[in-house]
Design a protein around this nucleic acid. Structure first.
Lengths: 232, 232
DNA sequence: ATCGCTGGATTGTTGAACAATCCGGTAATT
DNA sequence: AATTACCGGATTGTTCAACAATCCAGCGAT
């Protein structure tokens, strides 16, 4: 945790060792941000759409100022863009942005997998692979997509770095803005199902070099696919 | 300067081709954030210090709500931490955070340098090296520190990725929180002055593999130094 | 020393207000 | 007809004042 000179909180009776009673009720602004994030990921709000403060404030039954705070948060996450004095809009990814996003992913994913990770973290990667297989067997496209995101999230989690994790989470959130419907034809997934398996087993066998190379190759190909689909 | 892709705005007669008249007056909240960032980097606000909304609002002559917006921004940059219902404090880096920060730096800096860059970007790296030499000759410790930051910023800039640049800018801003006073003994710098030179010439000669290795070694050593100084 | 209470201070959130800015359309100009 | 100037409505940027919720320190009672 960031700083926190938390004084050793006395654990009375019931509370297990080190287990902190995290009952934190998220603030209203945070919940508004969360709701918007949800609607963005779900495709309710399409890229380019305009969000007017007053409308959303009324819709969610909160103050305009609070909406403003939420907007600020989502803007720094690049999910929304602010046009000063003109309003906030749902972010749209141009061709350049796709390359940009993949540049970030190459940097942090490859670096994370090359450094290996604890058995538990590796097990988490394996779990994501299996999750993907199950989704494929069930013909669950939705589930396939999120399984893939879990897979790549688990790879970054190998590094045990809170900062890398939040960066990755933001990047994935950005990508969810596009992946929505459209662009969702199945023979995409058929590829990386096998590929994730390969990467994972390379990781499990300790061949980090190979795992990194495979992952890098995948990311390069994925970027190319995305650009041919989206940008021109 | 967070990132700043300031284009050299030449105001020819009326309006050059495609040159957008970027006169953008930053919003009040942005200026408050900027002012706080400045005070943080300058060491005016020490890690752990508490910032009360009302006080700062009055000091800067702005509304409490505006201060709030600025706080939110700086909190997502990890320069401030919010303790719900208790206030915001200047972030403090624990031992774990140092490792975390260096994990991010290893990921993005090494990845960036390994991919090479355009001659102009490489020239920028060289410029940072020379800036460091000049500062050393002038015995300017302050200048030495910022030259080093410019050097590493220039390395990330090789990748031409806006997202990586902002991430790096934030990480560097975080580190500035510590580097202040203390930890500033000169024989630190004597090392990396030579080392930056080596890295840079390896980069210039196209030996990206070697450049990456040198950079990685530097980062590892730097992390170790920081932990021995700071953490216990 | 521990517990519980209470008052004061700060944060979280709201609602209303107003200035600044932008947008579209209409009128005036060339 | 095309361009310019202007005007009104709408939205954002910012402030202000209020209030509920929460936390903190102190104090007294057990």
């Amino acid at each position: 945790m960031a700083s926190a000179d938390q004084k050793p909180q006395q654990k009375a009776g019931i509370d297990g060792a080190g287990a902190r009673m995290r009952l934190r009720v998220p603030s209203v602004a945070e919940r508004v941000a969360e709701e918007l994030r949800y609607q963005l990921a779900e495709g309710f709000l399409v890229p380019g759409a305009k969000l007017t403060e007053a409308t959303i404030a009324e819709d969610l039954g909160v103050s305009r100022n609070t909406v403003r705070e939420a907007f600020a948060e989502l803007a720094t996450e690049r999910l929304l863009v602010r046009h000063p004095n003109r309003g906030v809009y749902v972010a749209t990814l141009e061709a350049g942005d796709i390359h940009d996003v993949y540049t970030v992913r190459r940097a942090i994913e490859v670096s994370s997998i090359r450094a290996g990770g604890s058995p538990e973290r590796i097990a988490a990667v394996r779990a994501a692979v299996e999750e993907g297989k199950r989704a494929a067997a069930a013909n669950d496209n939705e589930g396939l997509g999120s399984a893939n995101q879990h897979f790549h999230g688990a790879i970054v989690a190998l590094a045990e770095s809170g900062r890398l994790n939040t960066i990755m989470a933001q990047v994935l959130a950005e990508m969810r803005l596009y992946f929505h419907k459209a662009t969702m034809n199945a023979h995409f997934y058929s590829d990386w199902l096998k590929e994730n398996e390969q990467i994972c087993s390379a990781l499990e066998s300790g061949d980090l070099e190979r795992a990194g190379d495979l992952l890098l190759a995948y990311l390069n190909r994925s970027e190319q696919q995305q650009t041919t689909i989206h940008g021109q």
